[in-house]
Amino acid sequence: MSVDVLLIEDEPSIAEAVRFILTRDGWGCEQWPEGTGALERIRALAPRMLILDLMLPGRSGAEILADLRADPALAALPVLLLSARGTANLPPGADRVLPKPFANADLRAVVRELLEQA
């Protein structure tokens, strides 16, 4: 099964919720729980899109995003940013942003939109 979405999120319960939502919609979903090694994971799995949490142990979501955009092979990868710090001062480069807590319906809509673009 191909990987449609790679979720980078350290909170196990949130990760479980997101997986549950996406799997029911029929998307293939993988999770990575920390900032370190996230880029390597992205390269290895080559997902169609990325759901990225901002506050991560190791490297922050903002750093990963910056690296991603600087890499020609990955610059076009659609990214949905999850932010638990409101919507102010967000790093540039994300395609969509959802502030936590989010409605399940919003998440499904955004993911579908991004995957159809891709």
């Binding site: 909170e11 319960s13 949130i14 919720a17 997101v18 638990a84 502030p99 936590k100 807590p101 989010f102």
Partner: peptide, 11 residues
């Protein structure tokens, strides 16, 4: 505060 709230809301 938001992290647990997110899980609570989703579940």
């Amino acid at each position: 505060l938001r992290t647990p709230m997110t899980s609570i809301r989703a579940f």
